[in-house]
Amino acid sequence: MKILVSGGGTGGHIYPALAFIKEVKKHHPNAEFLYIGTKNGLESSIVQRTGGIPFKAIEITGFKRSLSFDNVKTIMRFLRGTSVSKKYIKDFQPDVVLGTGGYVCGPVVYAAAKLKVPTIIHEQNSVPGLTNKFLSKYVDKVALCFEEAGEFFPKNKSILTGNPRASEVMGHDGKEGRESLNLDPTKKVVLIVGGSRGAKPINDAFLDVLPEVTKKEYQVLYVTGEVHYDKVVKEVNKLSNPSNVIIKPFIYNMPQVLAGIDLIVARAGATTLAEITALGIPSILIPSPYVTNNHQEKNARSLGDKGASIVRLEKEFSGNVLLKDIDHVLLNEDILKDMKLASKKLGIPDAAQKLYQLMDQLIKQRT
């Protein structure tokens, strides 16, 4: 079996692709893979660092939403990228091509469709970007993570599979995650995280109420991001380093840690939501307003509308709001239980298996 995968730009496009590859290897240990990305994108370093996955690059940029001469250059890059992708595809001879998002998928998946190779695109968000909207006209199947995204794609092609990353957080022992950070096993834990680089509004809100946080019975695990770490640690040290507040710049064993927490405060990226719903973790979500199509707010609303999350827009967010919301969830057992159940109902823990099955069915239909 030969599988070509493409996805890039952000970890939200790359990590689901790698999770899918991992799932395929469980069923076909001898399967061959080719990953097509961009030379300067995150995918170049991330994919090649995993080892064992051949990587090829094309040059591509995204369309600007306003009239711009740059769009003419993008069209030319798309045409060249399609031509190069066709060469890669003819050389590799894949049984199926999967695109997990990002500009690079445009020419790669389009080229595959034109060469009559079975194609799937995977849409992580509740509102798709321009690339997947365009590709949906040509591909065989569209794999969705949110039911809400279905309205943007042909119904006869769309199927809800979930995000393969969700499968990777399953099966971990919460005790192991807590012990790795010296968390008290008898107290509830709220994880506050703003992404790999942190989020200044969340950072500022936390620091505003830090003296009150130190008085709480629950524990706060705050992942600051490298940029904000020194500032936050300095403020915590002023309060004699309280035992219920643990500050980390980054967490490398996040799947294990997630299994041991009771509540999360975070942005509303698709991968994060897939992971927490798979585990049934209640959330307080502060969607980033700086993303295309405001998709994070729409992602968050899909949880908030079903009782799995409290959604706070950045413009209405503050330290007092943060502390009030955490208390509301962690200090009320009935609310905590109901939110856990609501989150769990939205989760698709076997997402990687579902995407694999969709691929397998598509290949069999073509043979």
Rank of each mutant, 00 (worst) to 15 (best):
V104F: 01
L115C: 06
E43V: 08
V109P: 01
S158Q: 09
N125T: 07
H122Y: 03
F153A: 07
C145Y: 02
L285P: 04
E275S: 03
K64N: 09
I264Y: 10
D262Y: 06
N293V: 02
D204Y: 09
G171C: 10
A259F: 14
L79Y: 10
F250R: 15
L221R: 01
I348G: 00
E316G: 00
K2E: 11
P201V: 09
E32H: 01
V104K: 08
L263C: 07
E32M: 15
K157G: 03
G106Y: 02
S136F: 04
L330S: 10
F152H: 03
Y222R: 11
K238A: 15
G260I: 12
N244D: 12
I14L: 11
S196Q: 09
R80Y: 11
G194I: 04
A270S: 14
L285Y: 05
V291R: 05
K324H: 07
A278N: 05
F153I: 12
L279N: 06
L207N: 05
L263M: 05
R301L: 14
L67S: 04
K116P: 00
S66V: 12
V311L: 08
D140M: 05
F146R: 10
A300H: 04
H172G: 05
S288D: 13
Q48H: 08
K248V: 14
E23I: 10
I3K: 05
K234T: 14
V24R: 01
K26V: 13
K364I: 11
K215I: 01
K231G: 06
Q361E: 15
Q124N: 04
A308E: 08
M359L: 15
K200V: 03
T100R: 06
A270V: 15
I36P: 01
H13F: 07
G319T: 12
L258G: 09
I120S: 00
